[in-house]
Design a protein around this nucleic acid. Structure first.
Lengths: 238, 238
DNA sequence: GCAAAAGTGTTGTCAATACACCCATGA
DNA sequence: TCATGGGTGTATTGACAACACTTTTGC
């Protein structure tokens, strides 16, 4: 079907007669503090009015020709210097008055990073335990709640907890990650059985002795094997 | 912390110096055809270039001061005349070149409606079985795939299949709905056990004899009870 | 009386849970 | 030698899957 002139003018009305809106991307950045064994969130102090100086998620406007997921990556990179990190779209927030500064639709992403990576601490960023979080600007508290819920849900279906740990990690560490994500106690024997039965961990001969005298064996997540299983449509239940 | 003039000018730069973008809402409308016992999707012929005349999801631009979820409801209402329907955000699509007509970020919603409600058939709308769907414009095929997946996932965790049926429905009908959602056979005895054990169905004394000579009892979903359970944080697994 | 769909129970299997002790080591 | 966290096995339970026959009634 070929376009006619009439169609084109319709198109013009359709596209150019419609309202353009500021679109932001905000990131909920989760990290696992290996020392304190706590799941934390990275917050920073908002630079602009309204609410300058108050705690906020990191965010930025989407640029005219920028992919939204790339915008999210850009923000994360600017703040942390990290390139390849686990990041997924949460959902969009679009109440007309959610930002008193202007009408802004925000697309939230959450990401899982290793906390001890050094931050480009340009922005007065700081890690908070979720229960100790200050009140955030705009609807960012809601975003955090939603992200936490999403993280729980997704951690059941896919092995994503690894993203919060360094390449090599111990099973006790991984157990603690999952305890923090689910916010409930987990039996260590059952956890080991389940996680090892997935057959996605590569055991090394090294031990990490930082946590105990005996030392715990270091494991590595088998990304390739995982990708292959995903390709075959395999379903996980953690 | 009080705003200073400097802050305000920063704000101005921040908000007004940023790119505004067209934001659309697109709806994946699922319906269950009780006669054919098939899950279907409502499509319509696109009115504007590019791709005028080709099959498309229903959508519209979000207006300057419009809540995005209200935009979604508005679109659904304009097309179907239906007010209170089940509708949830799927996710946003934001590749810079996803719409050759202009840079448009689209927020997708999916909804579940009863198919036999009369449509305001302004738009050349038509129901399609998912497997018989024509190729859709832009990235709408991807949206439909994602919505189907989301529907499957959500139907496991929450009793939403009811939204595809009239207020009173029979268990054989509900079974067929779930078979269609999951795209796999379900054992009717096990299904009955599970669904009745949730204790969320109110049995009436009426029978629907349209499907058989014997007739099947009509049930009604107990919305109040369900709302109460949700409030108490109860978790479902269907 | 028969065709066609509705309705009903039992059994086996597997996965999740609960639970307690020995091991290795550094201090 | 002892305190600390790491590592292991088994019994029980409950949920899900598999499976076949009787009932009702319009034609």
């Amino acid at each position: 079907m070929k376009a006619t002139n009439t169609d084109h003018s319709l198109t013009n009305i359709y596209y150019y007669g419609s309202d353009k809106i500021l679109v932001a991307v905000d990131c909920i950045i989760f990290g696992f503090d290996i020392i304190e064994e706590k799941l934390k969130i990275l917050l920073f102090k908002r630079l602009v009015e309204p609410f300058a100086g108050q705690w906020s998620l990191v965010g930025s406007f989407v640029r005219k020709d920028e992919d939204i997921s790339l915008a999210a990556s850009r923000i994360l990179f600017e703040l942390t210097g990290l390139g390849e990190v686990f990041m997924e779209q949460l959902r969009s927030y679009g109440k007309p008055d959610r930002d008193p500064g202007s009408r802004v639709i925000s697309i939230a992403y959450y990401s899982l990073i290793q906390i001890n990576d050094q931050l480009n601490n340009l922005h007065d960023a700081q890690w908070f335990e979720i229960k100790d979080m200050p009140k955030l600007v705009l609807d960012h508290d809601e975003m955090v709640r939603d992200a936490q819920e999403q993280l729980k849900q997704n951690a059941i279906r896919r092995p994503i907890g690894f993203n919060l740990l360094p390449e090599y990690f111990t099973l006790p560490q991984l157990l603690k990650v999952y305890k923090e994500i689910y916010q409930k106690p987990l039996d260590d024997r059952n956890f080991r059985k389940k996680i090892l039965s997935m057959d996605l961990l590569i055991k090394s001969n090294e031990k990490d002795k930082s946590g105990s005298k005996k030392g715990a064996f270091l494991y590595k997540f088998d990304k390739e094997k995982y990708q292959n299983l995903v390709k075959k449509g395999f379903l996980f239940e953690l």
